[in-house]
Design a protein around this nucleic acid. Structure first.
Length: 589
RNA sequence: GGUCCUGUAGCUCAACUGGAUAGAGCAUCGCCCUUCUAAGGCGACGGUUCGGGGUUCGAGUCCCUGCGGGAUCACCA
């Protein structure tokens, strides 16, 4: 909250209690930015107080306005329009806020490191049988961004993923590779490891389809082979395990390359092959404690009908684990691995909402009190104009391909605009990445996570308008101004307390000053789009202001310094905000 | 059928969680580079916020109801 809003809130309380002998609740007091068509900067909505004053909104507002001007030195005058009390704030207030924020430098907007509870953020978690696609990009950017936002909001954060390295899917790739692979490796073929394994997954599917006609879905020989291999794997067959390790290794190498390219990282990796058995122990414990029930056939169930959910299977009658079983195990393992952990955040698509509701309930039943604070960061699908991506129809947008396309588009746009003359050849590849990936990340993160995203591969992602490159471009211009002013360290800029900012400058300043609140809020809601939207709001206001407010050419020295400070503050705030989205900012473009 | 999400300009999205005349971008049409980077700025056009009720000083936002879209309710993962 702006410092002035805190002052006003408390002034409204004491004012009401003195004038109307009754104090309103904090929640009834709403202070907002004054609309540009009215005089003033902050507005108090007075309707809620008419009940206390037993007067008209206008009279109530006037009385409160007089009280506030009298008692708050930062408030210079007021105007009541209908039920709105518009307050003008002193020049010195804005000057000192600007001074304070600009002095924070790159720290502006950030809360002290690890001043809040530790949170684990899980994201990515792909299967190891297929390369990453556009849906994974949304997942990775979202999870990474939420983790960064939580860090900025003061939490200690652990980024993890669980790698689904086990199961029938990888066995299918293995079978196909043995049958059709002729010993092909990433080295021999020049294919990225994940692409190579994915190729054999597809080859399996093709061969399987061909056999279905003759043998039926459940007894196609190649499927039986895959199942046989899964059994061998579970029995620890050394040959199978060796091939499994080798092929998974290829996939990891491929994924790692993509992660590096995307700019996401992890503090710890969990492998399903290590954790899938742990859950069984926990489920047995739950049976002993009475949290779960074992049926006569030996299967174990949890009854969640009290919470409005169903009964859910936790162990099959043959004693083998289901998906939920291993998620329980993994969750508890993580709380053991990180004793200070306050909660876990799971970045997983919205098709698993029910699964996570159940999981968190179960954790509670097992006595894991953090369960109720765990959060499923659910997000909508990325859809193509013709609907969902379908591998069968070849409409899957491959992550590596799209990243490459973004780099190429960035280059083409730069060439077209004739922007490369002043960019050394050696710096260009990095610039194309920054701009291309900035466009992509911003595109995917600026919308509310729970909504689905429409992506048209033919219409390619924009570089103008409300886009990442637009924000980067204005950042670059502001950096250029600071360079031209030979400012090495903007935190040492001094703002005269008597400087008068105009309305657009005050509005811009108010927008920038909301960064700490927005980061806090985005962390609470696990929603990067709030940060993205703020970056855009700042940039839009900045760009418009920049157009007709000379900075370096301003002759009034204290105004010039104040504008330099605004310029420095905007660029710093936007850089911080964009970094929370995983977008890096170029110095020139 | 039950539960959850969703419906805002031609298209893609906002709207400070109940506040003033619902805002941006794209697209279309004008204007602005001898001025700190024009990947920019300014203006015009564009709306029954899916329909219908209700709650109150005030509703895109909350409640009820109908309609459309999506997800989910497996001894799958």
């Amino acid at each position: 909250m702006l410092r002035i809003d805190e002052i006003l809130t408390s002034a409204v309380q004491t004012g009401c209690s003195e004038l109307f002998t009754s104090t309103p609740e904090i929640t009834q007091i709403s202070v907002q930015q004054t609309r540009p068509e009215f005089k003033g900067e902050r507005t108090v909505v007075v309707f809620p107080f008419t009940r206390l004053s037993r007067k008209t909104p206008e009279e109530t507002g006037t009385l409160l306005g007089e009280y506030i001007v009298e008692n708050c030195e930062d408030v210079t005058s007021f105007q009541v329009v209908k039920g709105f009390l518009n307050l003008s704030i002193s020049d010195s207030y804005w000057a000192s806020e600007l001074q304070e924020a600009v002095t924070c430098g790159a720290e502006f907007g950030l809360q002290p490191e690890s001043s809040k509870p530790q949170i684990m953020v899980e994201y990515s978690s792909p299967n190891t049988n297929k390369p990453l696609h556009l849906g994974h990009l949304r997942n990775n950017f979202l999870g990474f961004s939420v983790a960064e936002i939580l860090k900025a909001a003061g939490h200690s954060v652990v980024k993890v993923q669980i790698i689904n390295d086990r199961g029938i899917h990888i066995c299918k790739s293995m079978v196909a590779w043995i049958k059709f692979g002729n010993g092909e490796t990433p080295e021999s073929s020049g294919l990225k490891g994940d692409k190579l394994v994915g190729k054999y997954y597809v080859a399996f599917d093709k061969a399987y389809k061909a056999e279905i006609a003759e043998h039926g879905e459940n007894s196609a020989p190649i499927l039986l082979e895959a199942r046989e291999m899964l059994h061998k794997w579970e029995a620890g067959d050394s040959e199978v395990r060796a091939l499994w390790s080798k092929m998974n290794g290829w996939v990891y190498d491929g994924f790692d390359a993509t992660y590096t390219e995307m700019g996401v990282d992890f503090n710890k990796l969990y492998y399903e092959s290590d954790t899938y058995l742990i859950g069984k122990v926990q489920v047995e414990k739950g049976v002993s404690s009475g949290a779960f029930k074992k049926r006569e056939d030996g299967s174990v169930w949890v009854d969640l009908t009290d919470s409005g959910l169903d009964e859910k299977l936790l162990l099959r009658k043959d004693g083998t684990a289901v998906y939920m079983t291993q998620d329980i195990g993994t969750a508890i393992l993580r709380f053991e691995d990180f004793p200070a952990l306050d909660r876990q955040v799971y970045t997983v698509g919205n098709e698993q909402e029910y699964h996570f509701k159940v999981l968190f309930e179960i954790l509670g039943k097992l006595g894991v009190e953090q369960g109720e604070r765990c959060h499923h960061l659910s997000y909508g699908m990325v859809e193509l104009p013709e609907g969902k991506m379908k591998s069968r129809e070849g409409t899957v947008v491959d992550a590596d391909d799209l990243l490459q396309e973004m780099r190429e588009t960035a280059e083409a746009v730069a060439v077209e605009a004739g922007k490369l003359d002043n960019i050394p050849e050696a710096d260009r590849p990095e610039l194309f990445k920054q701009v291309g990936y900035g466009a992509l990340k911003y595109f995917l993160l600026r919308v509310d996570p729970k909504k689905s995203i429409m992506f048209d591969p033919k219409g390619s992602i924009d570089f103008i308008g409300n886009t990442g490159p637009y924000i980067q471009f204005n950042y670059v211009r502001s950096r250029s101004v600071l360079r031209n002013a030979s400012i090495k360290d903007s935190t040492t800029l001094k703002i005269s307390q008597s400087v008068t900012l105009d309305d657009t400058e005050k509005a811009l300043l108010m927008t920038v000053l909301s960064l700490p609140d927005v980061i806090e809020e985005a962390g609470k809601l696990y929603d990067p789009s709030l940060v993205a939207n703020l970056c855009y709001d700042i940039t839009k206001s900045y760009s418009s202001w920049y157009q007709d407010h000379p900075i370096l050419k301003e002759e009034n020295e204290e105004l010039r310094d104040a504008r330099l400070a605004i310029c420095a503050l905007c660029s710093s705030a936007v850089k911080t905000g964009m970094s929370l989205l995983g977008v890096s900012m170029p110095e020139r473009m």
